[in-house]
Nucleic acid binder design. Structure first.
Length: 650
RNA sequence: GCUGCUGUAGCUCAGUGGUAGAGCACCUCCUUGGUAAGGAGGAGGUCCUGGGUUCAAGUCCCAGCAGCAGCUCCA
């Protein structure tokens, strides 16, 4: 700028190479000097690791990286600028709209949003295509994004001129000597730190306006609700289309839709929102899950216990639930003049079981597992298919152990969790350790011991994990496990939590080898989380095509014509006697229609066809949904194929 | 809970204040067929519920219930 162009500066590029430029050179100049392609793809620069506009001039030696539209950082900028362009489009459509904020976000569905106040005339879904069209016009105008740096009084003047009322309190809170910047493109100006893409045209054609929803001002429920418009942007139109296809794929897999189509479950709707009916086919799958779960637990050193659905208010008082969890609990019922409450958790019952008699260190650890059905009040807007319900069954267990057993128990639980999840086809995990928060019960020493035990188990697992410092519950540190499903989404199911609170509240103790009384440590753990939610995840993961060990129907035998019906029926009988779940189809449909119904509509894995040549050979023409034609198999061969698939859990 | 949208046949959804519709599924009959939809006919409705406006309401208004999207919440 003011520096004369005969002063030279040294620019270090990310590959370590150095180039000399005239002082005052811009990011755009540097990109252009390196290559045409880079210049085209460049959106911004990083100067000494600070992201800046491409038009920023550089006056001193620096390391510079060009941010391109296909990098993660570039995409974030593209989306952030997309939010500005969307806001511009909205303002063109509705000049009375008052802007709040519009960041880029890291979300599976959306790339950016803008929160906007439309006063008493909110926009509707019908307006979204209009906004998208206006955005395309703004992109076509290709107006440069221009950074305007002002002082605070000037900034306030600009905000008032723009009638952007929500920006004024932000500016008023800003310290007087802070640098305040606006970004302008065309006739649109918005308060923003930046950086932005060089011009609106750089947004390209890979963007979309996706949906609208309410969002609180400042994401605070005590504030008024604004309209949030969601959009997304990608480097190319092709990538945008691919994203739309992913959204469509997720919609296709929606467990509510598949649950209906395959008649797996329903929810009680107006007879009880958030309450689930497991239909026979869903019930069968649950039965297989529970059967496996029980077998694993018995093998894994657990005992299986049962507890009631209700208990006197006193229990929930002692446990602390009435003090800390009351708003999630249902109002109770009066039994003999005593207040009883539905259980929101199983732990107090297991604690009572521990307290039933005096315990010795020789008995510990106890590992008590229960498929315990609990009821929790969830706000009406929270309910979602099987994923968020008001009555659900936790695959719960509580381990009571001595401090010296903690290491082993934690390591054992973590192994157990991962094995269980792998059995259901999940191989990819995210682990997170949450440590002591500010407000916590229990000695710092016991926290340290427990946290170390969790950390040790995580290290031993060989899986990378994140640490959420201070993110633990007030009663103890924990490990959360997330699983990645077949289309890349993460779900949290498992949690392993140490608890230093309940043993205190219930004054639990055991007699140690010194003859004195000691406090046991309690570990809560759920592997699948809630059976309802886990079932929902399984449905979406498998898209309703369940592996044979879970599938309610493993195969269908169908006849080509009437004269094959008896043989088909006999085959079904034979396969059923071998323990397989097989159905018969002798309906008067054409073979193509039957195949379509079973393999593609009902998502059954195997069909076996019997026609003239099969009658002749005594074999079956077997077709698998994914593996295709398996050729001619005898009933015994089909039976062992089914058995193999069950064993392999495929 | 909050904001917005939606609620019509078992399912997916059309429907302009004036006689309730389609496709699929279902039932019956015809067809007995060879690997992703054979044909014909039939039955099926508290248009979510309750109020209101109107000569007349599936349609407009209000309230409730439920569902959907998001926000807030989530030991």
């Amino acid at each position: 700028m003011s520096v004369s162009s005969d002063v030279e500066i040294k620019i270090t590029l990310p590959d370590g190479s150095e180039r000399v430029y005239a002082a005052g050179t811009t990011g755009a100049d540097i990109a252009a000097s390196i290559g045409k392609g880079l210049a085209k793809a460049a959106l911004a620069i990083r100067v000494n690791d600070v992201p800046l506009d491409l038009s920023t001039s550089i006056d001193a030696d620096a390391s510079v990286a060009v941010v391109t539209r296909d990098s993660a950082e570039g995409l974030t900028m593209l989306r952030h600028s997309g939010a500005h362009i969307m806001a511009d489009a909205v303002k063109r459509m509705r000049p009375d709209a008052k802007l709040w904020k519009g960041p880029a976000v890291d979300d599976e569905r959306y790339g950016f949003y803008y929160d906007i106040d439309f006063g008493d005339k909110p926009i509707t879904d019908d307006d979204l295509p209009k906004i998208e069209k206006l955005m395309a016009e703004i992109v076509a105008e290709d107006s440069p994004f221009e950074r305007v740096v002002v002082d605070k009084p000037e900034a306030l003047r600009i905000a008032r001129d723009l009638e952007d009322d929500y920006k004024i309190p932000i500016l008023e809170r800003t310290p007087d000597d802070d640098e305040i910047s606006f970004y302008k493109h065309g006739g649109f100006t918005d308060l923003c730190r930046g950086p932005h893409i060089p011009s609106s045209g750089k947004l390209g054609d890979g963007f979309a306006v996706l949906s609208i929803a309410g969002a609180y001002l400042g994401d605070d429920a005590s504030n008024k609700m604004l309209t949030r418009i969601y959009g997304h942007a990608f480097a190319t139109k092709k990538a945008m289309e691919a994203h739309k296809n992913r959204l469509a794929e997720a919609t296709k897999r929606d467990h509510r839709r598949i649950g209906k189509e395959l008649d797996l479950f329903s929810t009680m709707g107006e007879f009880g929102a958030g309450l689930v009916l497991w239909h026979p086919k869903g019930g069968f799958i649950r039965h297989k899950i529970e059967e496996f779960w029980r077998a694993q637990h018995l093998d894994g050193g657990y005992d299986i216990v049962y507890s009631p659905h209700v208990a006197k208010a006193d229990l929930w008082q002692t446990s602390g639930h009435l003090d800390f969890y009351a708003e999630s609990m249902y109002s109770g019922m009066d039994i003999d003049g005593q207040q009883y409450l539905l259980k929101p958790m199983n732990c107090p019952f297991h604690v009572m079981m521990f307290k039933d008699r005096r315990r010795s260190y020789r008995e510990l650890p106890f590992r008590w597992a229960e498929l315990g059905t609990v009821y929790r009040y969830e706000g009406a807007g929270m309910l979602h298919g099987l994923m968020r319900v008001r009555g659900f069954t936790q695959d719960d267990a509580h381990i009571f152990c001595t401090p010296s057993q903690l290491d082993d128990e934690i390591a054992r639980v973590l192994d157990f969790v991962l094995d269980m999840l792998r059995a259901f086809g999940f191989e990819d995990f995210d682990l997170e350790l949450s440590t002591r928060p500010e407000k916590a019960v229990g000695d710092v020493a016991i926290w340290d011991t427990a946290t170390a035990a969790l950390r040790k188990a995580l290290d031993a697992s060989g899986i990378a994990y994140d640490v959420d410092e201070g993110g633990g519950a007030f009663y103890g540190p924990k490990i959360d496990v997330k699983i990645r499903d077949s289309i890349g989404r993460m779900w949290q199911c498992s949690t392993i939590q140490c608890d230093f609170n309940l043993p205190d509240r219930f004054d639990l103790s055991f007699i140690g080898d010194d003859g004195g009384t000691h406090r046991p440590i309690m570990i809560h753990r759920a592997l699948l989380g809630s059976l309802e939610r886990f079932f929902g995840i399984l449905i979406e993961n498998y898209s309703g095509c369940f592996p044979l060990w879970l599938a309610p129907v493993q195969a269908v035998v169908l006849s080509v014509g009437e004269r094959h019906a008896d043989a088909a029926s006999a085959t079904v009988r034979e396969l059923r006697e071998a323990g397989h779940r097989v159905e018969l189809d002798t309906s008067s449909e054409k073979v193509g229609a039957k195949i379509r119904n079973h393999l593609w509509q009902s998502k059954i894995q195997l069909v076996a066809v019997i026609g003239d040549s099969e009658l002749e050979s005594g074999k079956l023409a077997v077709r698998h949904r994914k593996d295709g034609d398996l050729g001619a198999l005898s009933p015994a061969e089909l039976s062992s194929d089914i058995s193999r698939r069950v064993r392999e859990r495929t």
